[in-house]
Design a binder for these strands. Structure first.
Length: 429
RNA sequence: GGAGGGCUGGCUGAGUGGUCGAAAGCACCGGUCUUGAAAACCGGCGAGGGUUUGCGCCCUCCCAGGGUUCGAAUCCCUGGCCCUCCA
Protein backbone atom coordinates (compact mmCIF):
# COMPACT_ATOMS: atom_id res chain seq x y z
CA UNK A 1 0.00 0.00 0.00
CA UNK A 2 1.28 3.43 -0.86
CA UNK A 3 2.42 5.81 1.79
CA UNK A 4 2.09 8.77 -0.50
CA UNK A 5 4.60 11.28 -1.70
CA UNK A 6 7.51 12.24 0.45
CA UNK A 7 10.53 14.42 0.05
CA UNK A 8 13.34 12.58 1.70
CA UNK A 9 13.62 8.88 1.09
CA UNK A 10 11.36 7.36 3.75
CA UNK A 11 13.49 4.24 3.88
CA UNK A 12 16.54 6.30 4.71
CA UNK A 13 14.58 7.99 7.43
CA UNK A 14 13.65 4.67 8.98
CA UNK A 15 17.02 3.01 8.74
CA UNK A 16 19.32 5.99 9.33
CA UNK A 17 17.24 8.15 11.60
CA UNK A 18 20.17 9.37 13.68
CA UNK A 19 22.28 10.32 10.69
CA UNK A 20 19.37 12.10 9.02
CA UNK A 21 18.57 14.03 12.18
CA UNK A 22 22.20 15.07 12.47
CA UNK A 23 22.32 16.39 8.93
CA UNK A 24 19.04 18.22 9.32
CA UNK A 25 20.40 19.82 12.47
CA UNK A 26 23.10 21.54 10.41
CA UNK A 27 20.27 23.28 8.57
CA UNK A 28 18.78 24.42 11.82
CA UNK A 29 16.05 21.82 11.63
CA UNK A 30 15.34 19.80 14.71
CA UNK A 31 13.82 16.40 14.02
CA UNK A 32 11.84 14.91 16.89
CA UNK A 33 13.25 11.42 16.69
CA UNK A 34 11.09 9.96 19.44
CA UNK A 35 7.89 11.26 17.90
CA UNK A 36 8.93 9.98 14.53
CA UNK A 37 9.80 6.51 15.80
CA UNK A 38 6.54 6.22 17.69
CA UNK A 39 4.55 7.24 14.65
CA UNK A 40 6.48 4.83 12.48
CA UNK A 41 5.86 1.92 14.82
CA UNK A 42 2.15 2.57 14.90
CA UNK A 43 2.08 2.88 11.17
CA UNK A 44 3.76 -0.45 10.66
CA UNK A 45 1.42 -2.37 12.97
CA UNK A 46 -1.69 -0.80 11.52
CA UNK A 47 -0.63 -1.21 7.95
CA UNK A 48 0.08 -4.90 8.42
CA UNK A 49 -3.28 -5.38 10.08
CA UNK A 50 -5.15 -3.51 7.38
CA UNK A 51 -3.49 -5.43 4.61
CA UNK A 52 -4.26 -8.71 6.28
CA UNK A 53 -7.93 -7.81 6.46
CA UNK A 54 -7.89 -6.89 2.82
CA UNK A 55 -6.21 -10.14 1.87
CA UNK A 56 -8.88 -12.06 3.73
CA UNK A 57 -11.68 -10.17 2.07
CA UNK A 58 -10.15 -10.73 -1.35
CA UNK A 59 -9.80 -14.46 -0.72
CA UNK A 60 -13.37 -14.85 0.47
CA UNK A 61 -14.82 -12.84 -2.34
CA UNK A 62 -12.96 -15.02 -4.76
CA UNK A 63 -14.45 -18.12 -3.14
CA UNK A 64 -17.92 -16.69 -3.42
CA UNK A 65 -17.34 -16.20 -7.11
CA UNK A 66 -16.20 -19.78 -7.52
CA UNK A 67 -19.11 -21.19 -5.50
CA UNK A 68 -21.55 -19.16 -7.53
CA UNK A 69 -20.05 -20.38 -10.77
CA UNK A 70 -20.37 -23.95 -9.49
CA UNK A 71 -24.05 -23.34 -8.75
CA UNK A 72 -23.70 -23.73 -5.00
CA UNK A 73 -25.66 -21.85 -2.37
CA UNK A 74 -23.56 -18.80 -1.49
CA UNK A 75 -25.71 -17.45 1.32
CA UNK A 76 -23.62 -19.12 4.12
CA UNK A 77 -20.50 -17.59 2.63
CA UNK A 78 -22.11 -14.16 2.47
CA UNK A 79 -23.08 -14.41 6.13
CA UNK A 80 -19.50 -15.21 7.02
CA UNK A 81 -18.11 -12.00 5.52
CA UNK A 82 -20.87 -9.82 6.91
CA UNK A 83 -18.78 -8.03 9.53
CA UNK A 84 -15.51 -8.04 7.60
CA UNK A 85 -16.32 -4.90 5.65
CA UNK A 86 -16.88 -2.87 8.80
CA UNK A 87 -13.61 -3.97 10.34
CA UNK A 88 -11.78 -3.18 7.16
CA UNK A 89 -13.28 0.28 6.83
CA UNK A 90 -12.36 1.09 10.40
CA UNK A 91 -8.77 -0.06 9.95
CA UNK A 92 -8.50 1.82 6.67
CA UNK A 93 -9.65 5.12 8.03
CA UNK A 94 -7.43 4.81 11.07
CA UNK A 95 -4.47 4.10 8.83
CA UNK A 96 -5.34 7.01 6.55
CA UNK A 97 -5.36 9.36 9.53
CA UNK A 98 -2.03 8.09 10.69
CA UNK A 99 -0.46 8.44 7.28
CA UNK A 100 -1.71 11.97 7.05
CA UNK A 101 0.17 12.80 10.25
CA UNK A 102 3.19 11.00 8.92
CA UNK A 103 3.11 12.93 5.66
CA UNK A 104 2.60 16.21 7.45
CA UNK A 105 5.75 15.53 9.42
CA UNK A 106 7.75 14.47 6.38
CA UNK A 107 6.56 17.44 4.36
CA UNK A 108 8.32 19.80 6.73
CA UNK A 109 11.73 18.18 6.26
CA UNK A 110 14.16 20.06 4.01
CA UNK A 111 16.65 18.28 1.79
CA UNK A 112 19.85 16.88 3.26
CA UNK A 113 22.90 19.02 2.52
CA UNK A 114 25.73 17.52 0.47
CA UNK A 115 28.87 16.74 2.44
CA UNK A 116 30.80 19.51 0.67
CA UNK A 117 28.41 22.21 1.86
CA UNK A 118 29.88 24.48 4.52
CA UNK A 119 28.10 24.21 7.84
CA UNK A 120 26.77 27.53 9.07
CA UNK A 121 23.79 29.31 10.51
CA UNK A 122 23.02 32.08 8.07
CA UNK A 123 24.25 34.11 5.12
CA UNK A 124 27.22 35.41 7.07
CA UNK A 125 28.75 31.95 6.97
CA UNK A 126 28.49 31.44 3.23
CA UNK A 127 31.89 30.72 1.73
CA UNK A 128 33.32 32.72 -1.13
CA UNK A 129 34.70 30.37 -3.78
CA UNK A 130 36.11 32.79 -6.35
CA UNK A 131 35.95 36.31 -7.73
CA UNK A 132 36.01 37.50 -11.30
CA UNK A 133 36.72 41.00 -12.61
CA UNK A 134 37.76 44.25 -10.99
CA UNK A 135 35.13 46.75 -9.88
CA UNK A 136 35.57 49.84 -12.02
CA UNK A 137 36.79 52.98 -10.32
CA UNK A 138 34.73 56.04 -11.09
CA UNK A 139 36.08 59.58 -11.39
CA UNK A 140 32.71 60.98 -10.44
CA UNK A 141 30.09 60.26 -7.86
CA UNK A 142 28.19 57.12 -8.88
CA UNK A 143 24.43 57.18 -9.10
CA UNK A 144 22.21 54.22 -8.48
CA UNK A 145 19.97 52.85 -11.23
CA UNK A 146 16.93 54.67 -9.89
CA UNK A 147 18.60 58.04 -10.27
CA UNK A 148 20.02 57.05 -13.63
CA UNK A 149 16.55 56.03 -14.77
CA UNK A 150 15.15 59.32 -13.59
CA UNK A 151 17.68 61.34 -15.60
CA UNK A 152 16.60 59.69 -18.84
CA UNK A 153 13.01 59.29 -17.72
CA UNK A 154 13.05 55.78 -19.11
CA UNK A 155 12.78 53.85 -15.85
CA UNK A 156 9.61 54.94 -14.13
CA UNK A 157 8.56 53.49 -10.79
CA UNK A 158 5.96 56.15 -10.04
CA UNK A 159 3.82 55.42 -13.06
CA UNK A 160 4.14 51.70 -12.42
CA UNK A 161 2.86 52.31 -8.90
CA UNK A 162 -0.11 54.12 -10.38
CA UNK A 163 -0.80 51.30 -12.80
CA UNK A 164 -0.48 48.57 -10.21
CA UNK A 165 1.25 49.32 -6.92
CA UNK A 166 4.62 49.10 -5.31
CA UNK A 167 7.36 46.76 -6.52
CA UNK A 168 6.54 47.12 -10.19
CA UNK A 169 8.35 49.07 -12.85
CA UNK A 170 7.74 50.64 -16.21
CA UNK A 171 10.61 50.69 -18.69
CA UNK A 172 10.57 52.66 -21.89
CA UNK A 173 12.71 53.53 -24.85
CA UNK A 174 16.37 52.63 -24.60
CA UNK A 175 16.07 51.07 -21.17
CA UNK A 176 13.24 48.79 -22.25
CA UNK A 177 15.31 47.83 -25.26
CA UNK A 178 18.42 47.28 -23.19
CA UNK A 179 16.38 45.02 -20.93
CA UNK A 180 15.12 43.07 -23.93
CA UNK A 181 18.64 42.93 -25.37
CA UNK A 182 19.91 41.39 -22.15
CA UNK A 183 17.19 38.76 -22.13
CA UNK A 184 17.76 37.82 -25.77
CA UNK A 185 21.51 37.72 -25.30
CA UNK A 186 21.20 35.43 -22.29
CA UNK A 187 18.76 33.08 -23.94
CA UNK A 188 20.80 32.88 -27.14
CA UNK A 189 23.94 32.13 -25.17
CA UNK A 190 22.37 29.32 -23.18
CA UNK A 191 20.82 27.80 -26.30
CA UNK A 192 23.59 28.30 -28.84
CA UNK A 193 26.68 27.90 -26.69
CA UNK A 194 25.62 25.71 -23.79
CA UNK A 195 23.27 23.29 -25.47
CA UNK A 196 19.98 23.93 -23.69
CA UNK A 197 16.72 23.43 -25.49
CA UNK A 198 14.73 26.65 -25.65
CA UNK A 199 11.25 26.38 -24.16
CA UNK A 200 8.35 28.76 -23.95
CA UNK A 201 6.42 27.78 -20.86
CA UNK A 202 3.03 28.48 -19.28
CA UNK A 203 3.27 31.34 -16.79
CA UNK A 204 0.39 29.81 -14.88
CA UNK A 205 0.74 26.37 -13.34
CA UNK A 206 -1.41 24.09 -11.22
CA UNK A 207 -0.78 23.06 -7.64
CA UNK A 208 0.60 19.64 -8.62
CA UNK A 209 3.49 21.34 -10.39
CA UNK A 210 4.24 23.57 -7.43
CA UNK A 211 4.14 20.59 -5.14
CA UNK A 212 6.55 18.79 -7.44
CA UNK A 213 9.24 21.42 -7.22
CA UNK A 214 8.62 22.06 -3.54
CA UNK A 215 7.05 25.54 -3.45
CA UNK A 216 3.95 23.90 -2.02
CA UNK A 217 2.78 23.07 0.53
CA UNK A 218 5.21 25.10 2.62
CA UNK A 219 5.68 28.35 0.76
CA UNK A 220 2.21 29.22 -0.49
CA UNK A 221 2.48 32.75 0.89
CA UNK A 222 5.29 33.56 -1.57
CA UNK A 223 3.03 32.84 -4.54
CA UNK A 224 0.34 34.73 -6.39
CA UNK A 225 -2.72 32.52 -6.49
CA UNK A 226 -5.32 33.17 -9.14
CA UNK A 227 -8.87 33.70 -8.11
CA UNK A 228 -10.40 31.04 -10.34
CA UNK A 229 -12.01 27.63 -9.84
CA UNK A 230 -8.78 25.73 -10.34
CA UNK A 231 -5.78 25.84 -8.07
CA UNK A 232 -3.79 27.97 -10.48
CA UNK A 233 -0.78 30.07 -9.59
CA UNK A 234 1.53 32.52 -11.36
CA UNK A 235 4.97 30.95 -11.61
CA UNK A 236 7.62 32.29 -9.19
CA UNK A 237 10.28 30.95 -11.58
CA UNK A 238 10.36 28.97 -14.83
CA UNK A 239 12.02 26.23 -12.81
CA UNK A 240 8.51 25.08 -11.96
CA UNK A 241 7.16 24.42 -15.47
CA UNK A 242 10.54 23.34 -16.84
CA UNK A 243 11.28 20.77 -14.15
CA UNK A 244 7.71 19.48 -14.08
CA UNK A 245 7.93 18.60 -17.76
CA UNK A 246 9.44 15.33 -16.51
CA UNK A 247 6.85 14.80 -13.78
CA UNK A 248 5.46 11.25 -13.88
CA UNK A 249 7.75 10.40 -16.76
CA UNK A 250 10.36 7.74 -17.28
CA UNK A 251 13.18 8.98 -19.49
CA UNK A 252 15.63 6.75 -21.30
CA UNK A 253 19.15 6.86 -19.90
CA UNK A 254 20.45 7.63 -23.38
CA UNK A 255 18.42 10.85 -23.46
CA UNK A 256 20.22 12.25 -20.41
CA UNK A 257 21.16 14.88 -19.56
CA UNK A 258 18.01 16.80 -20.43
CA UNK A 259 18.90 20.49 -20.57
CA UNK A 260 16.09 23.03 -20.79
CA UNK A 261 15.98 26.80 -20.70
CA UNK A 262 13.29 29.43 -20.87
CA UNK A 263 12.96 33.17 -20.72
CA UNK A 264 9.92 33.95 -18.64
CA UNK A 265 8.28 36.47 -16.42
CA UNK A 266 8.34 35.49 -12.74
CA UNK A 267 5.91 36.56 -10.07
CA UNK A 268 6.60 36.70 -6.36
CA UNK A 269 4.47 38.11 -3.59
CA UNK A 270 7.58 38.99 -1.56
CA UNK A 271 5.62 38.47 1.62
CA UNK A 272 8.04 38.78 4.48
CA UNK A 273 10.26 41.20 2.55
CA UNK A 274 8.67 44.35 3.93
CA UNK A 275 11.12 47.21 3.95
CA UNK A 276 13.73 45.16 2.13
CA UNK A 277 15.13 46.62 -1.09
CA UNK A 278 12.17 48.94 -1.42
CA UNK A 279 14.09 51.25 -3.71
CA UNK A 280 14.59 50.32 -7.32
CA UNK A 281 14.15 47.12 -9.23
CA UNK A 282 16.22 44.71 -7.14
CA UNK A 283 13.13 43.14 -5.59
CA UNK A 284 10.00 43.27 -7.69
CA UNK A 285 6.71 41.39 -7.80
CA UNK A 286 7.26 40.77 -11.51
CA UNK A 287 10.57 40.27 -13.21
CA UNK A 288 12.08 38.38 -16.09
CA UNK A 289 14.57 35.62 -15.85
CA UNK A 290 16.34 33.12 -18.07
CA UNK A 291 16.13 29.84 -16.23
CA UNK A 292 18.25 26.75 -16.81
CA UNK A 293 17.12 23.31 -15.75
CA UNK A 294 18.95 20.02 -16.05
CA UNK A 295 17.63 16.53 -15.40
CA UNK A 296 20.58 14.23 -15.10
CA UNK A 297 21.87 10.82 -14.08
CA UNK A 298 22.51 10.81 -10.31
CA UNK A 299 26.21 10.18 -10.82
CA UNK A 300 26.52 13.27 -12.97
CA UNK A 301 24.67 15.82 -10.90
CA UNK A 302 27.61 17.42 -9.13
CA UNK A 303 29.55 17.77 -12.33
CA UNK A 304 26.42 19.30 -13.84
CA UNK A 305 26.20 21.74 -10.93
CA UNK A 306 29.69 23.05 -11.69
CA UNK A 307 28.92 23.31 -15.40
CA UNK A 308 25.67 25.08 -14.85
CA UNK A 309 27.33 27.57 -12.54
CA UNK A 310 29.80 28.19 -15.34
CA UNK A 311 26.90 28.77 -17.76
CA UNK A 312 25.58 31.51 -15.50
CA UNK A 313 29.06 32.98 -15.01
CA UNK A 314 29.59 33.11 -18.77
CA UNK A 315 26.86 35.74 -19.06
CA UNK A 316 28.51 38.02 -16.54
CA UNK A 317 31.92 37.50 -18.09
CA UNK A 318 30.67 38.39 -21.55
CA UNK A 319 29.04 41.48 -20.10
CA UNK A 320 32.28 42.19 -18.24
CA UNK A 321 30.52 42.59 -14.94
CA UNK A 322 32.57 41.80 -11.81
CA UNK A 323 31.09 39.08 -9.65
CA UNK A 324 31.86 36.51 -7.02
CA UNK A 325 30.67 32.95 -6.43
CA UNK A 326 29.52 31.79 -3.01
CA UNK A 327 28.86 28.32 -1.73
CA UNK A 328 25.80 28.73 0.46
CA UNK A 329 26.13 27.30 3.94
CA UNK A 330 23.73 24.73 5.39
CA UNK A 331 21.68 27.38 7.17
CA UNK A 332 21.16 29.61 4.13
CA UNK A 333 20.23 27.08 1.48
CA UNK A 334 16.77 26.75 -0.01
CA UNK A 335 14.39 24.06 1.13
CA UNK A 336 14.95 21.56 -1.67
CA UNK A 337 18.63 22.16 -2.38
CA UNK A 338 21.43 19.77 -1.48
CA UNK A 339 24.03 22.29 -2.63
CA UNK A 340 23.76 25.83 -3.95
CA UNK A 341 26.11 28.33 -5.53
CA UNK A 342 25.06 31.96 -5.59
CA UNK A 343 26.48 34.39 -8.09
CA UNK A 344 26.69 37.95 -6.83
CA UNK A 345 27.30 40.86 -9.17
CA UNK A 346 29.02 44.09 -8.22
CA UNK A 347 26.61 46.97 -7.58
CA UNK A 348 28.64 50.22 -7.50
CA UNK A 349 26.01 52.32 -5.73
CA UNK A 350 25.88 49.84 -2.85
CA UNK A 351 29.62 49.09 -2.93
CA UNK A 352 28.76 45.45 -2.56
CA UNK A 353 27.93 42.26 -4.43
CA UNK A 354 24.26 41.37 -4.84
CA UNK A 355 22.70 38.06 -5.80
CA UNK A 356 22.00 37.71 -9.50
CA UNK A 357 21.86 33.94 -9.86
CA UNK A 358 21.38 30.89 -7.72
CA UNK A 359 22.32 27.46 -9.00
CA UNK A 360 21.20 24.39 -7.07
CA UNK A 361 21.46 20.65 -7.18
CA UNK A 362 18.32 19.21 -5.63
CA UNK A 363 19.52 15.64 -6.12
CA UNK A 364 16.44 13.38 -6.01
CA UNK A 365 14.39 15.58 -3.67
CA UNK A 366 12.18 17.10 -6.36
CA UNK A 367 12.34 14.00 -8.54
CA UNK A 368 10.92 11.87 -5.75
CA UNK A 369 7.93 14.16 -5.33
CA UNK A 370 7.45 14.38 -9.07
CA UNK A 371 8.25 10.76 -9.82
CA UNK A 372 10.63 11.96 -12.50
CA UNK A 373 12.67 8.91 -13.39
CA UNK A 374 14.86 7.28 -15.97
CA UNK A 375 15.54 3.73 -16.99
CA UNK A 376 18.98 2.30 -17.56
CA UNK A 377 19.29 -0.64 -19.94
CA UNK A 378 21.05 -2.63 -17.22
CA UNK A 379 18.79 -1.72 -14.31
CA UNK A 380 15.53 -3.48 -13.61
CA UNK A 381 13.72 -0.61 -11.97
CA UNK A 382 13.44 2.99 -13.04
CA UNK A 383 15.59 5.28 -10.91
CA UNK A 384 14.98 8.81 -9.76
CA UNK A 385 16.65 11.55 -11.75
CA UNK A 386 18.61 14.35 -10.17
CA UNK A 387 17.29 17.82 -10.87
CA UNK A 388 19.23 21.06 -11.06
CA UNK A 389 18.11 24.57 -11.66
CA UNK A 390 19.77 27.92 -11.95
CA UNK A 391 19.19 31.41 -13.21
CA UNK A 392 21.13 32.33 -16.25
CA UNK A 393 20.38 35.13 -15.29
CA UNK A 394 17.84 37.37 -13.60
CA UNK A 395 17.25 39.99 -16.28
CA UNK A 396 16.03 42.87 -14.11
CA UNK A 397 18.91 42.66 -11.68
CA UNK A 398 21.31 42.32 -14.56
CA UNK A 399 19.89 45.52 -16.03
CA UNK A 400 20.59 47.22 -12.71
CA UNK A 401 24.16 45.95 -12.81
CA UNK A 402 24.69 47.08 -16.41
CA UNK A 403 23.19 50.52 -15.77
CA UNK A 404 25.29 51.14 -12.71
CA UNK A 405 28.56 49.61 -13.88
CA UNK A 406 28.38 51.19 -17.32
CA UNK A 407 27.14 54.62 -16.24
CA UNK A 408 28.67 57.82 -17.55
CA UNK A 409 29.02 61.06 -15.65
CA UNK A 410 26.14 62.60 -17.62
CA UNK A 411 23.82 59.73 -16.75
CA UNK A 412 24.00 57.91 -20.04
CA UNK A 413 24.63 54.17 -20.07
CA UNK A 414 27.33 52.75 -22.26
CA UNK A 415 26.12 49.66 -24.12
CA UNK A 416 28.24 46.57 -23.35
CA UNK A 417 30.03 45.26 -26.43
CA UNK A 418 28.10 41.97 -26.63
CA UNK A 419 24.75 43.78 -26.53
CA UNK A 420 25.43 46.17 -29.38
CA UNK A 421 24.05 43.81 -32.06
CA UNK A 422 20.82 43.75 -30.08
CA UNK A 423 20.76 47.54 -29.76
CA UNK A 424 21.02 48.47 -33.39
CA UNK A 425 24.69 49.20 -32.85
CA UNK A 426 24.05 52.04 -30.39
CA UNK A 427 26.99 53.07 -28.17
CA UNK A 428 24.96 54.68 -25.42
CA UNK A 429 21.47 54.74 -24.02
C1' G B 1 -23.27 27.73 -25.62
C1' G B 2 -25.15 22.53 -27.37
C1' A B 3 -24.30 17.05 -28.70
C1' G B 4 -21.35 12.93 -28.72
C1' G B 5 -16.64 9.90 -28.29
C1' G B 6 -12.40 8.82 -25.51
C1' C B 7 -8.55 8.41 -21.27
C1' U B 8 -5.88 0.88 -19.79
C1' G B 9 1.55 -1.09 -18.72
C1' G B 10 7.70 2.43 -21.96
C1' C B 11 4.37 2.79 -26.67
C1' U B 12 -0.06 0.93 -29.67
C1' G B 13 -4.34 -1.40 -28.11
C1' A B 14 -8.21 -5.60 -26.37
C1' G B 15 -11.11 -6.11 -22.27
C1' U B 16 -18.65 -4.18 -19.98
C1' G B 17 -19.43 -7.49 -12.47
C1' G B 18 -15.75 -12.81 -10.16
C1' U B 19 -9.99 -17.22 -11.55
C1' C B 20 -8.05 -9.71 -14.76
C1' G B 21 -2.51 -6.62 -12.94
C1' A B 22 -5.06 -7.10 -17.35
C1' A B 23 -5.12 -10.31 -24.43
C1' A B 24 -2.24 -9.10 -28.60
C1' G B 25 1.52 -6.34 -31.01
C1' C B 26 5.81 -3.04 -30.74
C1' A B 27 10.04 -1.87 -27.82
C1' C B 28 13.38 -4.04 -24.33
C1' C B 29 16.25 -8.26 -21.91
C1' G B 30 17.98 -13.53 -22.00
C1' G B 31 18.57 -18.11 -24.89
C1' U B 32 18.78 -21.35 -29.49
C1' C B 33 20.71 -20.91 -34.38
C1' U B 34 25.11 -18.10 -36.80
C1' U B 35 32.22 -16.99 -37.98
C1' G B 36 29.57 -12.38 -36.31
C1' A B 37 25.07 -9.82 -37.09
C1' A B 38 20.10 -9.81 -39.00
C1' A B 39 15.86 -12.92 -39.56
C1' A B 40 13.33 -16.97 -37.29
C1' C B 41 12.09 -19.64 -32.94
C1' C B 42 11.85 -20.19 -27.36
C1' G B 43 11.55 -17.68 -22.71
C1' G B 44 11.25 -13.25 -19.73
C1' C B 45 9.37 -8.35 -19.27
C1' G B 46 4.40 -2.58 -15.57
C1' A B 47 4.69 0.74 -11.17
C1' G B 48 4.45 1.89 -5.94
C1' G B 49 4.30 -0.08 -1.06
C1' G B 50 4.37 -3.63 3.26
C1' U B 51 6.68 -7.85 5.41
C1' U B 52 10.85 -11.36 5.52
C1' U B 53 18.07 -12.97 6.80
C1' G B 54 16.43 -15.06 2.15
C1' C B 55 13.15 -17.85 -1.25
C1' G B 56 8.74 -15.74 -1.01
C1' C B 57 4.07 -13.98 0.66
C1' C B 58 0.77 -9.89 0.73
C1' C B 59 -1.51 -4.91 -0.36
C1' U B 60 -2.53 -0.90 -3.80
C1' C B 61 -2.74 1.08 -8.74
C1' C B 62 -6.57 0.48 -15.54
C1' C B 63 -7.29 9.78 -15.65
C1' A B 64 -8.73 11.81 -10.34
C1' G B 65 -12.23 11.68 -6.26
C1' G B 66 -16.66 9.66 -4.23
C1' G B 67 -20.63 5.67 -4.42
C1' U B 68 -23.17 0.65 -5.30
C1' U B 69 -21.52 -4.64 -4.27
C1' C B 70 -19.37 -10.25 -0.66
C1' G B 71 -16.45 -8.74 -5.07
C1' A B 72 -15.36 -2.99 -9.79
C1' A B 73 -10.74 -1.65 -15.30
C1' U B 74 -16.00 -3.06 -16.06
C1' C B 75 -22.06 -0.20 -13.04
C1' C B 76 -23.53 4.99 -10.84
C1' C B 77 -22.18 10.27 -9.44
C1' U B 78 -18.72 14.48 -9.53
C1' G B 79 -14.36 16.62 -11.57
C1' G B 80 -9.96 16.96 -15.04
C1' C B 81 -7.90 16.40 -19.74
C1' C B 82 -8.13 15.08 -25.05
C1' C B 83 -10.95 14.50 -29.68
C1' U B 84 -15.18 15.06 -33.12
C1' C B 85 -19.61 17.45 -34.68
C1' C B 86 -23.18 21.58 -34.22
C1' A B 87 -23.96 26.92 -32.92
Amino acid sequence: METGLTMLDPKLLRTELDAVAEKLATRGFELDKAAFSALEEKRKALQVKTEQLQAERNARSKNIGKAKAAGEDIQPLLDEVADLGGQLDAAKSELAGLQEDYQALLATLPNLPHESVPVGQDEDENVEIRRWGEPRSFEFEVKDHVDLGEISGLLDFETAAKLTGSRFNLMRGGIARLHRALAQFMLNTQVDEHGYQECNVPLIVNDDSLYGTGQLPKFAEDLFKLNVDHDYYLIPTAEVPLTNILRDQIAQAADLPIKLTALSACFRSEAGAYGKDTRGMIRQHQFEKVEMVQLVHPEQSYQALEEMTGHAEAILQKLELPYRVLSLCTGDMGFGAAKTYDLEVWIPSQQTYREISSVSNCEDFQARRMQARFRSPDAKKPELLHTLNGSGLAVGRCLVAVMENYQQEDGRIQVPEVLKPYMGGAEYV
